[in-house]
Design a protein around this nucleic acid. Structure first.
Length: 898
RNA sequence: GCCGGAGUGGCGGAAUGGCAGACGCGGCGGUCUCAAAAACCGUUAGGGGCGACCCUGUGUGGGUUCGACUCCCACCUCCGGCACCA
């Protein structure tokens, strides 16, 4: 009955896994062709920056393994599956790591990538390594540059000088999306503003289409919402306020000039009692009267000193100064004072607002602080007065001023007012976005050079396509300079070139592109990774795109995922790709946390910038990870343990190498799927993988116990053992569960509900174990042997996507050739999977009182009758009236009494 | 403050209008063993009862419904994101 414990019957996962990995490699099992009659499926992981720490069990269990299971399942379902992997090797993460290690990224990156590759193979991920790409190799970035030129030619890449986000530690400009809470995404340093000439991609031109496309893709609602907010569309109007210039001076002679404001509430124009300009607004100097000059200058200087973070602190009291000038409210001719204040931002709208304190909380606070009048445009109650207000009026009320008096406070009124403003020539409807253009210049070495040259005669000239790539020169020293120029500026052989147009002397652009440019099209390159004539062939992208299933981390919600959508739309417009949304289905996985020693820190204690691992190293409230040297000096009884994300910088990484050695890759795979739902954050414990390992041991034992009963000809034998309905109950029941399990596991993999899929497998294994125990050492009947053969074969195939090494070993032990990867996914028979007897719940007034087991086909009326006859119901009834009987077919009967 | 997501045994979690706690971890009891481990069998929400059973229970308070973990309203807590965007 029990398994004998001879060594040759142990689950020897180390031997098994090494053996099958060798065979898969030898057979080039995961190679995929672009042409196939089969339907295609494109499953994609976000390609990683290969860090020196290698991958952790977190990356394996939460990212790579679940998608691998989904892809393997698709292959078995008969799809031609593209499941590639490559390296996001250009950019700050890799370069910062190289600087820290004192190494050349050219050597370091391939070394780290090779280690990643080894680890991914170690856990049995089914990548087609023939398609491996590296964004820092010239045959890749040549095409990144080529796409830059596509954008350039379409007017979507431009150079401009504006204040940019500057990281003083990384010594480079950053895109808005790379500034997290006012800090650099890589090193956590506070970001400064610096005016510099920089290259931008005009992503704002695609704002509306980036919004619209979100409605057509299956992404988590949270991520879509984040993108919508990041794009920040708001509808309103722009209104011109004529300026009353200070007495004499040249301006007084000229046409009356105006200040344009953007407002989402033009219906409150009648309550505008002052105007506020951003301190950086270009008109400020001309508007400032002599007696206010000193105060205004002092304020502007103060604003510049205050950090961006401080300025954005909402809790802070309002600040500002009066310019001495007035503007004319165009709807009522009133003169209203013009102030400057840092709560108005130059970068949004027109950098100027009309202030309506009665209906805007910020304006209200400002008006109260500086004694500016407040005037209601809407009133909710008859006796409402401005003097009694303690905050701006919330939504609602009826308009009491202007030609629209009596109108309700709603969207329709706003639209009416906009139309009226347009008729009066005062203003016009206008839509504004929070999204800013994408800053792509980096003053760094390790990136794709921007393919532009500057000619004295011809000006800015794009490098012709046939001169690509603009190669990144190999240099000794590549450290960022901090001068605002990249290290490439110091290399005359790189900088000095000839103009492609006139042949005269010219200088190259020395900034490189940020890494996010490289990662905005890599999914296209995977379709045709070795094409030397084009970024990708039309044939390849038409076959493979869009990506059907994309999995990655939530931190890319408004960075990479927005950029990649933008590039895809541009390439779509250029007729280069067949789809305008690259990722049809996107899922983001939860994090893996590790229990980590740290120590309490004081709130004012300096935060050391983090290292160049995959996140900044900010303390959690008042707690900080112990650095290795601190673990030596601080006694363990003073350590304060917390659950924090696994990362190299925290010294808490558990590697797949050690887990594969101790429990096996298949155990790690099973653990990753079973421990929690895909999206959930998981706390790592060795106990988790240990229990997965125990389950596989159990499967091994049960499977090998039953193996002797296997009959390869079981399909034919099925016909000879009588109809299924006449099988003995135990056999019928096991077979029913088997077919239910086939359905459940397949559905759950499809829906990324791996944990319940694995639970179903475990449940089936428990049933199978019972069956085996009941069989004991008796010889099985024909029915039993046939059933067990079906079970052995099916179980093996169900395990294949999840624990592929073990599955292939079983497959071989059944005497089969080849690999389970190439086998069709088992089909379930709905008739066999259907329950024969069902349990009907009997409730009285909604409370469970009894259960009835009836044949599935029992008519509802009969079930009702049985329920009313039930002793439990009759006891409850006890003389009371049956008011109503509710019967849900196949589920329950609820008897309402009273 | 605003926008998302979540709150269920000792723990990870299952059930999305119809049997709350699948599956696993941990615990308890047993078989085997000189013993232990492993394995196997049983048990395990809380309270009550010798017992068949009974009562209570899904963050809190209301509501809708024959029936609510599930839907609606208000609130509390936690996680993630945004944050003076006019």
């Amino acid at each position: 009955m029990m398994s004998d414990d001879h060594n040759d019957n142990r689950y020897d996962f180390r031997t098994i896994e090494a053996k099958w990995q060798r065979r898969w490699e030898a057979a080039n099992l995961f190679h995929v062709e672009n042409n196939s009659d089969l339907p295609k499926f494109y499953g994609l992981d976000m390609f990683p920056y290969p860090s020196g720490a290698g991958i952790s069990v977190g990356h394996c269990a939460k990212n790579y393994i679940p998608l691998d299971v989904a892809c393997r399942h698709k292959v078995m379902q008969g799809y031609n599956v593209l499941h590639p992997m490559g390296w996001d090797a250009f950019g700050q993460p890799a370069e910062n790591e190289a600087i820290k290690q004192g190494r050349n990224p050219r050597e370091m990156v391939p070394e780290y990538a090779a280690n990643y590759k080894r680890q991914l193979k170690l856990v049995g991920i089914s990548y087609d390594w023939d398609r491996e790409i590296n964004s820092s190799s010239p045959d890749y970035y040549q095409w990144t540059q080529w796409i830059f030129l596509v954008l350039y030619k379409r007017g979507l890449a431009y150079r401009a000088t504006t204040p940019i986000n500057w990281c003083p530690s990384c010594k480079t400009g950053l895109a808005n999306e790379e500034v997290v809470n006012g800090r650099c995404w890589r090193c956590g340093s506070l970001v400064e503003k610096r005016p510099m000439p920089q290259w931008y991609f005009r992503i704002t031109a695609y704002a509306d289409r980036l919004l619209e496309g979100l409605d057509r893709i299956q992404w988590p609602e949270g991520v879509k919402q984040m993108q919508r907010e990041w794009i920040g569309r708001s509808e309103g109007a722009e209104v011109d306020f004529p300026i009353v210039f200070p007495e004499e001076g040249p301006a007084a002679e000229a046409e009356p000039e105006t200040i344009r404001v953007f407002t989402t509430r033009p219906d409150t124009l009648w309550g505008a009692t002052f105007m506020v300009l951003a301190p950086e607004h270009p008109l400020v100097d001309r508007l400032t009267t002599p007696e206010h000059r000193a105060e205004v200058a002092e304020y502007k200087e103060w604003v510049q000193r205050v950090s961006e973070i401080e300025r954005q602190n909402v809790e802070r009291a309002k600040t500002g100064v009066f310019t001495g000038s007035y503007a004319i409210n165009p709807v009522n001719g009133e003169h209203i004072p013009i102030w400057i204040a840092d709560y108005v931002l130059m970068g949004y709208g027109t950098g100027a607002i009309m202030a309506v304190p009665a209906h805007d909380q910020r304006d209200f606070e400002f008006a109260r602080k500086f004694g500016i009048p407040i005037r209601l445009v809407y009133r909710i109650a008859e006796d409402q007065t401005e003097a009694a207000m303690t905050e701006a009026l919330p939504a609602g009320g009826t308009m009491i001023a202007g030609p629209f008096a009596g109108a309700p406070n709603d969207k329709t009124t706003v639209n009416k007012v906009i139309r009226w403003l347009e008729e009066q020539g005062i203003g016009e409807g206008r839509i504004n976005y929070r999204l800013r253009d994408w800053l792509i210049s980096r003053q760094r070495y390790w990136g794709a050079p921007i393919p532009i040259v500057y000619c004295e005669k011809c000006g800015e000239v794009p490098v012709p396509e046939d001169q690509l790539p603009v190669e990144l020169p190999d240099v000794e020293s590549y450290q960022p300079t901090g001068t605002g120029e990249s290290p490439l500026a110091a290399i005359p052989e790189f900088v000095n070139t000839t103009c492609p147009t006139c042949g005269g002397p010219a200088k190259r652009e020395t900034d490189t592109m940020g890494g996010s440019a490289c990662s905005s099209w890599y999914f296209l390159r995977f379709t045709d990774p070795h094409n030397a004539q084009a970024a990708f062939s039309q044939e390849a992208v038409r076959y493979w795109m869009p990506v059907d299933l994309y999995a990655g981390g939530a931190e890319h919600a408004v960075g990479h995922l927005l950029y990649a959508r933008f590039w895809t739309k541009v390439l779509y417009d250029a007729g280069l790709v067949p789809v305008d949304e690259p990722f049809m289905r996107y899922r983001n996985q939860g994090m893996m946390l590790a229990y980590t020693p740290g120590r309490e820190i004081r709130r004012d204690e300096a935060v050391t910038p983090g290292d160049e691992d995959d996140e900044s190293d900010e303390p959690i409230e008042n707690w900080k990870v112990l650095r290795p040297e601190e673990r030596q000096t601080i006694p363990p009884d003073q350590w304060v343990w917390r659950w924090v994300k696994m990362s190299k910088s925290k010294g808490n990484v558990v590697t797949p190498d050690e887990m594969a050695e101790k429990y096996g890759a298949d155990s790690l795979r099973l653990f990753g799927l079973f421990v929690a739902p895909f999206e959930e954050t998981v706390q790592w414990t060795d106990k988790g993988i240990e229990s997965a390992h125990n389950y596989l041991n159990r499967v091994w034992r049960i499977w090998t116990d039953l193996r002797p009963h296997y009959r390869p000809d079981w399909r034919e034998a099925l016909a000879g053992i009588g109809p299924f309905e006449q099988w003995p109950e135990a056999e019928r029941s096991l077979r029913r569960t088997l077919h239910q399990t086939i359905r459940k596991v397949g559905d759950d993999i499809e829906n990324f509900r791996f944990n319940t899929g694995v639970a179903a497998l475990m449940k089936f294994t428990n049933d199978l174990s019972q069956f085996r125990n009941a069989l004991g050492s008796k010889a099985p009947t024909d029915t039993q042997a046939t059933l067990l053969s079906e079970v052995l074969e099916t179980l093996t195939l169900l395990l294949s996507p999840i624990t592929p090494h073990l599955a292939d070993e079983f497959w071989e032990r059944l005497g089969k050739e080849g690999f389970t990867y190439k086998q069709p996914w088992p089909q379930y028979n709905p008739e066999i999977a259907a329950e024969e007897a069902i349990t009907i719940v009997v409730q009285v007034n909604g409370k469970l009182r009894d259960r009835l087991v009836v044949a599935a086909e029992t008519p509802t009326a009969e079930v009702e009758r049985l329920a009313l006859e039930s002793e439990k119901v009759r006891a409850e009834l006890n003389g009371k009236q049956v008011r109503k009987v509710i019967a849900v077919p196949g589920k329950l009967v609820n008897v309402v009494i009273g």
